[in-house]
Design a protein around this nucleic acid. Structure first.
Lengths: 156, 156
DNA sequence: CGCTAATTGTTAGCACGCAAGTATTTTGTA
DNA sequence: TACAAAATACTTGCGTGCTAACAATTAGCG
């Protein structure tokens, strides 16, 4: 089997191609693709915990910490301690962050349209459905008594 | 527009989900997903240059250097200087690397089948075609005389 | 021949994304 | 109340991918 025909290869490359395009779009705002996604998520729902934000963006808490560190350094978000639960923090958009989130939201709509311009409506619908199913794929590691070594990292 | 409906988000997450699964499969061989793909590529075509290998795997030379460093440290590949062109090197599988490439190749076939087991043949065909088109997408950065700042990195 | 292009691989620095481990705090239970 | 368990965020270390800059070599052209 050729490398190019491996579904994991094709999935990874399609994902990276999309990330490259999205990166170019938000670079004008001084943002990376992931940072723009964080702002987009915060635009919908402000004052959330790190955990909740990571759930929406499907990344671990460790990744969130780094993303939030950079966004905070840019003065786009602010960490506030949670009043009831002293373990938790609440993440808020600053005024500049609010403006940036509006910009990225508009960019996202335009970029989606442009990126998919060459695809028919049927293809777009099929693609969305397939990607959703693929992203939710959870091939559980059947671990019958053994001490699982844990999954590796890597993107491809 | 919700973050979850952004095509770049969906593409990235589907790619990562596939990478996670593929990573689990090759972890038993002590390999990462990307390393296994390098071995798969070398199984088809040995004694190639870094540049050619990067072209097949769609990664830059800098990324190839790191991958080859680790594979060489594991004694799975070997760098040999090119006799005619002293800039270039040739990459060869060691005997252990050859064996590993056979194993990863078999794993790739099985993993592809398992991963796509829940999808109909029509869906698989459609998915392959769409991913291929997406991966080859090249929205050229129209750069009319300006000094382009260059694209950012980031995966999502 | 001699100078400039272009090519080849590497290095350095950054941004993700993950697992594993830590510190703090909250919660559940005896 | 006291103690174990869970939750929350952070830190560390690694692998991958990118751009940019670099040294070495080759190719092209006057």
């Amino acid at each position: 089997m050729n490398v190019e025909d491996c579904i994991f290869f094709q999935l990874a490359k399609a994902g990276l191609a999309g990330a490259r395009y999205w990166n170019e779009q938000v670079a004008a705002l001084g943002l990376t693709a992931s940072q723009a996604m964080v702002l987009n998520a915060l635009r919908d729902e402000d004052g959330v915990s790190v955990h909740r934000l990571g759930d929406r963006l499907r990344v671990t808490g460790a990744t969130m910490t780094g993303l939030l560190d950079r966004l905070e350094a840019m003065d786009l978000i602010q960490r506030k301690p949670h009043l009831q639960d002293r373990r938790a923090i609440e993440i808020f958009l600053t005024p500049a962050g609010r403006a940036a989130s509006e910009a990225t939201s508009a960019l996202a709509i335009a970029a989606n349209r442009t990126f998919l311009a060459d695809y028919s409506l049927e293809e777009q619908t099929a693609l969305r459905g397939l990607l959703k199913r693929l992203a939710q794929t959870e091939h559980q590691t059947d671990d019958p008594g053994g001490t699982g070594p844990g999954a590796r990292k890597g993107d491809l």
